[in-house]
Every structure is written in C-alpha cells, then in structure tokens.
Amino acid sequence: MRITLVIAVLAAVQVLVNRLPAGAYVPLCAATAAVLLLIARRSGLTWADLGLGAAAARRGLRWGLVLAAAVLAVYLVGLAVPVTREAFLDERAANLSPGELVFRVLVRVPLGTVLLEEIAFRGVLWALVERRRGHVWATAVSSVLFGLWHVVPARGLTSSNAAAEAAFGTGSTGVALSVTAAVAGTALVGVLFCELRRRSGSLIPPVALHCALNSAGYALAWSAGRWWGEQLP
C-alpha cells in the first residue's frame, strides 16, 4: 500500500511538472521529497534504512568525492576528444544565459532533480521494497521506475542533442528509439546508483554521482556550445 502511494505521488508530480511554471520546479521537488520521507517514516523505516543515517555518512562522503572527481575527469576527456565531443552539443544547455546556467547547476539540479529522484528512488522506494522482498527486488523495481520516470524528458532528445540526432534521426521512429534507449540507459544507471547506496549504506554516493553527471554535464555542454556552437543542429 505504501509503495503504491509513493508511485501515485510521483505520477502526480510528473504531471504537475509539465503544467506549472518553471519557477515552481524546485519548491515542488523539495516538497515532494519531504512528503515521501514522511510516508517512509510513518511506515516504520529509520533514517539508516533510508540511507540517511549518520553512521554511514562519513563513508558515503568519501565515496561521493571520488565518484564526482571521476565523472569530471571522464567528461573533460570526452570534451577534448573530437569523436566524443558531439555528445556535449546540446541546445538545452547551449541556449542558457550565464545566470540561467548557474541556477541550473547550483540550484535546479541539486535541490530539485537530484534531491527528489534520490530520495524517491534510492531512498524511499528502495527501502520499502527491500524490507519486503530484499535488495535484488528493491534495485529492480527502483531502477525500472527510474527509467520510466524519464520518458517525458527523453522525447525531446533527438531535436536538441547532436549525437542523438545523428544516431536516431528526428522522425517518429527515431524519437521512439531514442526514448527507448534513454529509458533503458537510465534504468541501468539506476542499478548502479542502487548498488552504490546499498554498498555504502548511504545516499551520499548516488547523490554525488547524480549531481556530478547532471551539473557538470550542463556546464560542459554550455561551454561546448560556446566553443563549437556551429556544430549544433
């Protein structure tokens, strides 16, 4: 029952995100994360069950710093190599003003996207399923739902990202294939995030990795758009 309630809350938020003004995104995500934590605590889960216990925080922080540094190193290599540079040419980032970029990197991503998704998928959902069915089922359910969560944003991938357009095209078939690939890829990333959460006992490693992937990705895509903008679709 609690799992169904959590999924229903997330479905409602997915609808609201696409109907409310952009300024409501971060408050909505923060409020939703708080509601999900309340549901989890009322279900008898402890802070440690949710990956938010103090005992595992130091270990989680060490893992998080290493992961964030690794992501930045890989991104910089990818940006420097011409054959992989096209993946960074994304209109969604390139068209941001400097102020919008700073807000996206320092506020919208960590306090909106990452906060909600990590609390929801690696915190509350994972813990609820793990308590009943074990960590394998918890990881499977959390990761599949995490992939499906990205169906809507993935629909615009081929029209904004040069690498996605080159790989799939911009027709309806290409859009369908790109969405399928994005959902499957995001689900696999979800498995990695769940394993980091399970092995460390903390949400800090997946939070750090998620922030690094998204925030650094926006920053470098914005930079790539300024340096190699003529390659954008």
Rank of each mutant, 00 (worst) to 15 (best):
A57Y: 01
G217I: 00
A164F: 12
R108K: 10
R198Y: 14
W228T: 12
V189W: 14
S43G: 14
A11M: 02
A55E: 15
D49E: 08
V9G: 07
S142P: 03
E91A: 15
R19Y: 12
T46Q: 02
A212K: 06
S202T: 11
R104D: 08
S97H: 00
L52H: 03
A57V: 07
I39M: 03
G99C: 03
L177W: 09
A24I: 02
G229K: 05
S172A: 09
G123Q: 10
R62P: 03
R131Q: 13
R59H: 14
F146K: 01
L125N: 11
V6W: 06
A80N: 05
V66W: 08
P206W: 09
H150M: 03
S142F: 04
A56D: 15
W149D: 09
P233K: 02
A166E: 08
F103C: 00
G78P: 11
L101Y: 12
V9Q: 07
A31Y: 10
R62W: 11
T46Y: 05
A164Q: 10
A219W: 12
F146I: 05
I3W: 08
Y25W: 05
A187K: 07
P205F: 04
L145M: 11
L28A: 09
V15I: 14
V136W: 07
S202R: 11
V207K: 09
A208P: 06
W149Y: 14
D49V: 01
L67M: 03
A70N: 05
P82C: 04
L96Y: 11
A224S: 13
G201L: 03
P233A: 02
G185A: 02
A164S: 07
R133S: 07
N161T: 06
V26N: 03
I119F: 15
P82K: 01
V26I: 12
L89F: 03
V109N: 12
G169M: 05
L36Q: 07
V109L: 01
V144T: 08
R199H: 13
V9S: 00
V71M: 08
E100P: 05
A166Y: 10
L232P: 06
P153H: 07
A94K: 00
A216S: 14
E230Q: 11
P82R: 00
E100G: 15
A34R: 00
R19K: 13
G23D: 01
L157G: 01
G53I: 07
